[in-house]
């Protein structure tokens, strides 16, 4: 982490304003999950439409992408919206 970023987060954490945060991998590592007519449809990458709204997020811990896709496909919103599965940076 750069010095400036570290200073920023240290200050935020010290002030008690920041509750939660992490770094996401780039969009090329994302997978978008939709369920239509009971079929699980996958698309590589993030939401295609920049106009789409992000309505919420869940942090999940999975063994692999297939498990994450399964979890996402069971989300009620997956049947009419889309769930983007995006990994965190690790290490």
């Amino acid at each position: 982490m750069t010095h400036r970023r570290a200073a920023y987060f240290n200050e935020l954490d010290a002030s008690g304003v920041r509750l939660l945060g992490d770094r996401l991998r780039p969009g090329s590592d994302a997978t978008t999950v939709r369920v239509r007519d009971a079929d699980v449809l996958l698309a590589d990458g993030p939401f295609a439409e920049t106009k789409e709204q992000i309505a919420g997020f869940d942090i999940i811990e999975c063994a692999d992408l297939d498990q994450a896709i399964e979890v996402a496909s069971k989300h009620p919103v997956a049947t009419f919206g889309a769930i983007e599965v995006r990994p965190f940076w690790e290490e």
Partner: peptide
């Protein structure tokens, strides 16, 4: 390179899919 990165970073499993995923 991108494809291999995604396999690693998004944890695409190296396996023959389980029965319920196998047909599709």
């Amino acid at each position: 390179v991108r494809a291999k990165q995604k396999i690693r970073n998004a944890a695409i499993p190296y396996r023959v899919p389980p029965a319920h995923l196998l047909p599709e």
